[in-house]
Amino acid sequence: MSPRALGALVARLGRSLRRVLGAPDYERYLAHMRLHHPGEPALSERELFERRLRDRMERPGGRCC
């Protein structure tokens, strides 16, 4: 495996792990906004991150016993 391919694999694993933890995938969100809502302002990475956080922390069922 070339160093570059290895780097890409590590980056991909990292992105997956972030999403397992519940952090949003910002690139995917931007792609979604470009495709479906062109011209509308997109949230910044921090705004999206915090929006997801609030959503998770305000409902029962975000965490269990």
Partner: peptide
């Protein structure tokens, strides 16, 4: 799909 709540994963 809206990029934040509904996200195919």
């Amino acid at each position: 799909e809206d990029g934040h709540d509904f996200v195919p994963t």
